[in-house]
Nucleic acid binder design. Structure first.
Lengths: 221, 221
DNA sequence: ACCCGGATTTGAACGCGTTCAACACGGTGC
DNA sequence: GCACCGTGTTGAACGCGTTCAAATCCGGGT
């Protein structure tokens, strides 16, 4: 039999699933807190008992998307591919997953950027989520052959995640049909990034790459 | 005597200056449209007659900051300096100018990112403003000695502007006193960027740089 | 059975950005 | 002088996110 905690958890989950469904079906703006609450058969006050803000519910969407991204991308990564191919897979599956929410438009980034209350983008609260996202790129890097130079192997996943954020920004503003320009960008940029990584083996290049990595470390805290 | 157009223009300017003052003095959230209108001795409806949204008034702030940035940076740029020094100047004056608005926090970027109605960040409406911002970097590039390689000279200003956007993002989330971490980032990153540019003279590097430039051109439209 | 206290729920109310129908102003043509 | 009309101006009203005091639920101690 369900303990009180379990019932509460059920309400919470119902709110999340209702919110995500409405986000998908009618978009961000039309999905009001009142609409979510009504569709979940609770009062608006109750919705706020479980989630401090509408943004928090959007962050639930992000979490969900991220998990789906991971579960779609991982099976497609095969050891021995070069980094460019693996990158294409990860970036393209990412765009696949976000597809239904393209008309969130700039809200998609706006909200992600906002450190509203608990959940921020680069802050400590979402550090967990970010680490999990980066770990997907770590997988890709780990499976790639040839392996990237040691000097950057550890930091490459994070850098690739930043590249992914940039691609997402591009995608948000991509008004071409089915966002095909973003697809082209990915297919062309991925091999370039792969070549850049290889290039970092050259002594002269390596020197500066090491300095860049050091700058990142120095800036991290 | 003022023509009707002139009087209208005066009201508009009064609203802008009032809004910018309030933004500076009491921050983004407390500066409500009602507060702006009241302080300017007009009704809220009138404020909306001149500006379609509160975001539009924030975009006025951006425009103003950008002009001040330009007029502070340009006199400090001297021909013959290397790119790293010039970059430091442009980035640091940029941060100087934005300083008073640091507690806008993520709104600073959120709103810039939003393509709300007329004014967007990467859209055609703000293309003018963006071009003007990029031209500041074009000045810096033009004055730098040695001159950057021809292969990237034309596109470098735009790339540097993207770097500036990244620095701004970092600044927004920089909670160190006086955002000194951002200063350190600038002082260390600027020379690195300069070295990267020089590096692009190497034949192997040049090849990939040309491909990157081509990707940018191909993606532009 | 009863009551207590925390967990949960409610719906009214607040402040905000925004909209809009109605109105005031002021110059133009007669 | 007057009617006209486009340019401003107004304040009430709407819908939204959010808050909160009060009500309700419910398991455990007596």
């Amino acid at each position: 039999m369900p303990t009180p905690t379990a019932k509460s958890e059920a309400t919470r989950e119902l709110l999340v699933s209702t919110a995500l469904r409405l986000f998908r079906e009618i978009g961000y703006e039309k999905t009001t807190m009142r609409a979510i609450a009504t569709a979940a058969n609770v009062s608006t006050g109750s919705a706020y008992y479980y989630f401090a803000s509408k943004d928090d519910l959007v962050h639930e969407l992000y979490r969900s998307l991220q998990e789906e991204h991971r579960s779609r991308a991982l099976p497609l990564l095969r050891e021995g591919q070069n980094l460019g191919e693996l990158l294409k897979v990860v970036l393209n599956t990412g765009i696949d997953v976000m597809g239904p929410y393209h008309d969130f438009g700039s809200n998609f980034i706006s909200i992600a950027i906002r450190p509203s209350a608990t959940t921020s983008p680069f802050g400590s609260e979402s550090a967990v989520a970010r680490a999990r996202a980066i770990s997907l790129f770590r997988q890709a890097v780990g499976l790639s052959r040839p392996q990237p130079p040691l000097a950057i192997r550890d930091d490459l996943p994070e850098l690739l995640w930043y590249a992914y954020m940039a691609v997402t920004l591009f995608w948000v503003y991509d008004s071409s049909p089915h966002q095909e320009r973003t697809r082209r960008l990915i297919d062309r940029a991925a091999p370039l990034i792969s070549r850049l990584v290889i290039l970092s083996r050259l002594p002269v290049v390596r020197k500066i790459v090491e300095d860049i990595v050091q700058l990142i470390h120095g800036t991290r805290q």
